[in-house]
């Protein structure tokens, strides 16, 4: 194997971060986020990336339970925050 698991993980995290930031900028141009939308979406994105990093690392170190728990403890809040952020962004657009 040329790349180790952890190298592949951090490469993937870089791709996710770039796509995530790109998508946020794209939708901000479209929907004009307010402060709350920015805060929830950015925190959600950070948590989502952290969840991926944690869970894949836990699998690589051979601790599948830690990986599953990572998905629950960090993953669910990240999804909730992203959905909430989307709602906040869209509600502003609807009011306009």
């Amino acid at each position: 194997m040329i790349f180790s698991g952890i190298e592949m993980l951090f490469f993937t995290l870089g791709v996710m971060t770039t796509l995530g930031i790109g998508t946020i900028i794209y939708y901000n141009r479209k929907l004009k986020f307010n402060g709350w939308a920015w805060a929830t979406i950015c925190t959600g994105l950070f948590l989502l990336i952290f969840t991926t990093a944690w869970s894949v690392s836990a699998v690589l170190e051979g601790e599948p339970r830690a990986s599953s728990m990572g998905l629950i403890v960090f993953g669910i809040p990240s999804i909730i925050l992203l959905v909430l952020g989307r709602k906040l962004a869209l509600s502003k657009k609807t009011k306009e």
Binding site: T18, I21, G22, I25, Y26, R29, K30, K32
Partner: peptide, 16 residues
């Protein structure tokens, strides 16, 4: 107000 696909690629390129 919107970003078209070309703009998205452009921003993506700048980001990269």
């Amino acid at each position: 107000n919107t970003v078209n696909r070309r703009d998205f690629l452009k921003y993506g390129g700048v980001l990269t």
